[in-house]
Each structure stands twice: as structure tokens, then as C-alpha cells.
């Protein structure tokens, strides 16, 4: 259990992996905006082309990208079907009792489906190429402006990275407690729902107690190491290099392209 990977980071060395997390966050944002404003085949073509280009550059196998698709399959089917049945425009293709499927409906359904698929793939590229800890750093830096309205951005980012650090430790702990209680004859399978929930108390209580103990000890250790919130320097400061600037340029061009394509229709 200890070698479990957190998030779905795919460890290879590519130009996309090397980009500053802020660039990738911004790019993902632009991509999402583009998906929602795109309204014709030309803009979809631009999006498709760009997405494929990024995927190839990221060296992430395609199979890893569509893995995330399983979870949204149902939403995908339902939303596509809804559009197919309820959008009425263009020629009627099938007419059967109350069911009336039009060509406009089918096209709309296809676009919605594509939009959802692209959304999942696009965000997966981000999570597959960025370490969770870098993501936390990137978020902290790019959302820094929120400090003005008293949102504790640094603290939230710190909590995120501490959570990541402790997930494997807590997994191991859970495993150990389950074994210890099993050795005391505990039974986690039998009984109805309420009984089953009750069965888990001998695991949840010790886990909760030890998590709080850990948290307290960690807080003391952090204080002892002079941690006092935001006033600190960075060992690995986020710094833009040439590629990052170029990437920002490409992203702006991409958005401009989509807007132009939209104006065409």
C-alpha cells in the first residue's frame, strides 16, 4: 500500500511536464472557455487539433487519458440522449409516436458529447503532467490576488500539500487497524446496513484519534521549525522561462482563433 501514487501523475519527461504549473492552469482555463464558446465545426476543428497536439507533446499514452472517461460515461450518455430527444430543429429523421428526432438534435447531441469528452481529456492532461505538490504551488501563486479579499490562499495550499504528504501514512494506518481489529474477531461483512456501519466504529475511532494526534504533533513540529504562515521564501520558487512565455502566447493565439472561427458563422 505504501507505493501508491497520489493523484494520477504520469511520470515522464516532456515539454508539457516541464511547463510552469501556472501556465498549465491558465491553459486549462482557456481550453474550458474555448469549449463553451465554440459553436461551429471550424472552432471544434481548432480545438481538436490543439488537444491532439498537446497530448502528443505530453508523451502520455492515450489509454491513460480515456481512463478518466469511465466515470462520466453515464452523464455523457444521458446528456447526449436528452439533446437528441428534446432539441427540435432541422429535418425530422425519426418519427415514432411521441419521439421525434431531428437532425439539429443529433448535431447538438454530438457537440455536447464531444464537449464533455474534451473537457475530461483536457483536464486529465493537466493532472497527468503536473505533480500534486506543484499544482498546489501553482494555485497558491496564481490565486495570490485573492489574499486581498482575505482568502487564506497560502494556508489552503499548505493544507493541500500536507494532505498529500499524509495520505499514504493514513492508508497504512487504516490497513493496520483493520488487521488489528480483525485479529480481535471483528466482523465487517455480516448484518444489515446499520449493523455494517456500526461494525466500522472500531476502525474509525482509532483512525480519528490517531489523525488528531498526528495533526497536533505535526503542528508542534512545524511551529518548532519557525512556521508562521505566509512570510517565507521558497526553495523552489516558480519562475517563468522562455518556453512558458511562448506557451502563454500560443494559448492567447488559440483563444483568438476560436473567437475568429465563431465569428465566421
Amino acid at each position: 500500500m505504501s507505493n501508491i501514487t497520489i493523484g494520477q501523475y504520469y511520470n515522464v519527461n516532456s515539454i508539457i511536464h516541464k511547463l510552469d504549473p501556472r501556465v498549465k492552469l491558465f491553459g486549462t482555463l482557456i481550453f474550458i472557455v474555448a469549449l463553451f464558446v465554440a459553436n461551429n465545426s471550424v472552432s471544434y476543428a481548432i480545438i481538436t487539433f490543439s488537444l491532439v497536439a498537446v497530448i502528443i507533446a505530453s508523451k502520455v499514452p492515450f489509454i491513460r487519458l480515456i481512463k478518466g472517461m469511465k466515470q462520466i460515461l453515464i452523464i455523457l450518455i444521458i446528456s447526449s440522449l436528452c439533446n437528441m430527444f428534446f432539441v427540435k430543429s432541422g429535418n425530422t429523421l425519426v418519427h415514432f409516436g411521441a419521439v421525434n428526432i431531428t437532425s439539429g438534435g443529433v448535431i447538438k447531441a454530438a457537440y455536447i458529447g464531444l464537449r464533455l469528452i474534451y473537457l475530461v481529456i483536457g483536464t486529465s492532461v493537466m493532472t497527468l503532467t503536473t505533480k500534486p505538490s506543484d499544482m498546489a504551488d501553482g494555485l497558491e501563486k496564481s490565486l495570490g490576488f485573492l489574499k486581498v479579499i482575505k482568502i487564506p490562499v497560502h494556508e489552503i495550499a499548505m493544507m493541500m500539500s500536507l494532505a498529500l504528504r499524509f495520505i499514504p501514512t493514513l492508508m497504512e494506518e487504516t490497513d493496520k487497524i483493520i488487521k488489528a481489529q480483525t485479529a480481535r474477531g471483528a466482523d465487517f461483512e455480516s448484518g444489515g446496513l446499520i449493523r455494517k456501519v456500526k461494525n466500522y466504529i472500531p476502525i474509525l475511532v482509532p483512525l480519528f484519534v490517531s489523525s488528531i494526534e498526528r495533526a497536533l504533533e505535526l503542528a508542534t513540529a512545524m511551529e518548532a521549525r519557525c512556521y508562521r504562515g505566509g512570510v517565507r521564501t521558497k526553495f523552489r520558487p516558480l519562475k517563468y522561462n522562455k518556453t512558458d512565455i511562448i506557451a502563454y502566447g500560443v494559448q492567447i493565439l488559440f483563444l483568438a482563433g476560436i473567437i475568429c472561427a465563431n465569428l465566421l458563422s
Partner: peptide, 21 residues
């Protein structure tokens, strides 16, 4: 096997971490 587990008692490292009542 549950009976066997009662017959062969197992005390893990830091067993105090399993107290819950």
C-alpha cells in the same frame, strides 16, 4: 477462521492505537 483468530491472539506493534471504546 474467526474462532481460530480468537484462539491465536495477535498483538500488533503499538497496540494501544487500536483502542476505541
Amino acid at each position: 477462521i474467526r474462532r481460530h483468530r480468537c484462539n491465536v491472539g495477535m498483538v500488533f506493534q503499538y497496540p494501544e492505537h487500536q483502542l476505541f471504546e
